[in-house]
Nucleic acid binder design. Structure first.
Lengths: 353, 353
DNA sequence: CTGAAAGCGCTTACAG
DNA sequence: CTGAAAGCGCTTACAG
C-alpha cells in the first residue's frame, strides 16, 4: 500500500540486523532487558546495532501503544522568540494550574516563532497534530497569513483582535480608567499620560480610558500635557517628568506606559523636591520584580497572564468538546499591584485584584 | 488479547453509532468532509455523534499515522511552578535556537511541577514517553526521590550537582572571581559581599570566588565585612549598605547576591554622598530588565540560561545517539551585563560575554 | 531466554 | 459519495 515514510532505522531493522525478534529489541531498548532476562550478550548486540543504525525511537508510537486511560489534550503555545520573558512563564503556570483545576490532562508544547515566520509552523496548525493552539505576540503580517488558512483545531489569539479566531485580551481601556480610580483623591488636580510615539492600539486604549476616567472625576487632563517618547531610557524618563511638571499643577496623577522609565522619572522628582506620592501619584505599566523594592514602592498594572491562560484553556476545552463555531472573545481586567507610589496602600499591604 | 485501554469514544464507536465507515468519520472529523464530498447530512450526523459521545481524538495516533520524514525528539522541560520567571523564557529560547542550529526537530514540552512533587510526574520520566528530560529547580528532597528511580532516557539537571544524572550549571566560583576582575582598579582598597543567611551552595561558592579573587588582587576583604540578610527588602538593602560602609575604607567593590536589594543600597549611598562607581563599585546577581535604566546603569551577573539550554540539548542528543553511560557535567561562565555601576563600561556599551 | 502475533487509534490509497 | 483493509512504529501478553 503506502511505502515507509520515516527516514532512519526502526526496531524492525535492528531486529533483522542482530538476528533476533522485534520483541527482544523492544524490551532491551526499553530498559527491561535485565528484568526479562535477555542475555547480556544479546543486549549488547542490540544496543550496538541501535547506535550503528542511528536508531531514534518514535515517541508517538510508544505513547499510542502504551495508551493511558485518559487521552491528553495537546496544547501548543506559540510565542515570539523576541518576547520570551517572564510573561510566558506566568502564562505556562496559568495553563498548568487551570488544567489541574479542570482535572484534565493537558500536555503543553511550547513553540517559539520568529516574527513574520509563524507560518513556517503552519503545518502544525492545519495538520490536526495538536488539540488546540494559543498564539501570542502576533504581528499584523503573521495574522493575515494565519487568517488565510483553514483550520479544524481551535486557535486562540492572545492580545489581538480577530473576527476569525478566538481571542483573549486585556481590557486596556478599563485598565486606564481603573488606574485613575486608584490614584484619585480629593486633592488631585491634574493627570498626565506618558507613553510612546509608535504606541500600540492597546496603549492608545489605555490612554483613552485614563483620560476619560480623569474627566469623569473632574481631574484636569489635556492631550498637550501627555508626553510621547521614542523609546525607553533613563534620559527619556527624566525628561518626560520635567516636561510634564513644567505644564501641570500639583498634586497630579500619572500613568506611565513602561516601567523602565521609572528610574528617570523618580530621579527627576527627587532631584526637584517633588514627593511621590504626596505631589505626584504614579502607576507604571508592566510589573517587574524590582518595583516593589523601590522607595516608595512603585505601583504597577500588568497583563493578567495567568488568568488569560486559564481562559484560553477553557476556550480550547469548550471548542474541543462541543464544536462552537463562532469565535469567542474575552477581555480581562488587568493585574494591579497597588503600592505606595499611587497614593493609598490597600489594607492587605499589596493590592492585587 | 489485551482489552481496550482508553476511556471515551473513538472513531470506531462514532462510525457504529452513525452507521457509516470509520474512514468517513475520520475524513469528516479531519475537516476534509467537503473536499472528499461527504454529504452534508452525513457530516452533521458525524459531528453530532462525536459531540454526544464526547469524542476526543488521540493526537499520538494521528501523529503516528501521519508520520513525517524525520521523527522529532520530544524534550520535556520540568520547571518549578514557583520559579516560572523570565529565565524559563530564555531557556526555552535557548533550546529552540540550538535545535535550529543543530538542524534537528525537537518538540519541547513544558511540565511545571510543585516543589516536593516532582515524582508525581515520575511515570513520564520512566515510561519512555519522552526522548529526554531537563529538570530545573530541583530540591534536595525531589532529587533524592528522583535518584531512587531507574531511567533509560537521559535526564539533565540544571543548576544541581549529581553523580547519577547529567548536569549543567553555572560556575559560581569563577563568577565571583570574575566579578572582582571587572571591578578591580588601582584605587580600589576594599571589597564586600552582601548575601543571605540561608544562602545556597551556589551563593557560597560565588562568595568564595569573590573573596579569593579580591585577595589575589590585594584588595582587602574580611568575613566580618560581609553582610548576610534574612530576605530582600528595601530596608535590608539600605541597612546593608550602611553596615558595610561603617566598616570599610573607600573606594570599595561590592558583589550583591540579589538585584532586588539595589533600591535600598543605591539610596543609602545617595543619601550619604557615596558616589557609585567612584566610591563604591557594584555588581548585582540576577539581571532584571530595569537595571539598565537606573542612573548609573547597574551591572549584573546572571545565569546564562540560553547557553545552558544549548548544552542541555546537546547532551540529550549525544545521549540519545550514542548511549553515553557516564553522566556529563558542564559548567558555564555566567552572563555579565557590565554597566557603569561596576566602574568601567566596556567599549561596546554593554558588555555581555 | 526468545519469537510470532495482536493491537494501540488513527488516516489514506484504492476499489466501487 | 462510501467502505474495507492496510499499516504508521511500537509494546506486550502468551506460547514455547
Amino acid at each position: 500500500m503506502e511505502t515507509k515514510k520515516t527516514a532512519g532505522a526502526q526496531i524492525k531493522e535492528i531486529a533483522e540486523k542482530v538476528g533476533v525478534s522485534q520483541s527482544t529489541v523492544s524490551v532491551v531498548l526499553g530498559g527491561r532487558g535485565d528484568r526479562i532476562r535477555i542475555s547480556k550478550e544479546t543486549q549488547k548486540k542490540v544496543w550496538d546495532a541501535a547506535r550503528e543504525l542511528n536508531y531514534r525511537p518514535n515517541i508517538y508510537a510508544r505513547r499510542l501503544r502504551q495508551a493511558e486511560e485518559e487521552v491528553p489534550y495537546v496544547l501548543a503555545i506559540f510565542w515570539r522568540t523576541d518576547n520570551l520573558n517572564s510573561r510566558v512563564g506566568r502564562f505556562i503556570r496559568g495553563v498548568y494550574e487551570a488544567s489541574e483545576k479542570r482535572e484534565c490532562r493537558v500536555e503543553v508544547m511550547i513553540q517559539p516563532y520568529r516574527p513574520g515566520e509563524l507560518m513556517r509552523h503552519g503545518e502544525m496548525l492545519s495538520g490536526n497534530r495538536i488539540s488546540g493552539a494559543v498564539i501570542s505576540g502576533l504581528s499584523s503580517e503573521d495574522q493575515e497569513a494565519l487568517e488565510a488558512g483553514d483550520y479544524t483545531i481551535p486557535i486562540i489569539l492572545i492580545g489581538r483582535e480577530s473576527t476569525k479566531f478566538h481571542c483573549v485580551m486585556m481590557d486596556s481601556y478599563r485598565s486606564g480608567e481603573q488606574c485613575i480610580a486608584y490614584m484619585a483623591a480629593p486633592g488631585i488636580k491634574t493627570a498626565a499620560f506618558i507613553g510612546f510615539d509608535n504606541n500600540s492600539r492597546a496603549e492608545r486604549k489605555m490612554e483613552a480610558g485614563f483620560m476619560v476616567g480623569c474627566r469623569s472625576r473632574n481631574i484636569r487632563v489635556k492631550e498637550d500635557w501627555n508626553v510621547y517618547l521614542g523609546c525607553s531610557s533613563y534620559e527619556n524618563g527624566y525628561g518626560a517628568a520635567r516636561e510634564v511638571l513644567s505644564k501641570i499643577e500639583l498634586p497630579s496623577a500619572w500613568l506611565v506606559a513602561d516601567s523602565r522609565l521609572a528610574g528617570g522619572i523618580m530621579d527627576y522628582c527627587q532631584d526637584n523636591g517633588i514627593r511621590v506620592p504626596e505631589d505626584v501619584r504614579i502607576i507604571f505599566f508592566e510589573e517587574s520584580g524590582i518595583l516593589k523594592y523601590n522607595r516608595p514602592p512603585l505601583s504597577s498594572v500588568d497583563v493578567p497572564s495567568m488568568e488569560m491562560a486559564e481562559t484560553a484553556l477553557d476556550i480550547m476545552l469548550l471548542a474541543c468538546n462541543s464544536q462552537i463555531d463562532i469565535p469567542i472573545r474575552r477581555e480581562h481586567l488587568p493585574l494591579y499591584c497597588i503600592r505606595e507610589s499611587s497614593g493609598g496602600l490597600p489594607q492587605d499591604g499589596e493590592g492585587k485584584r
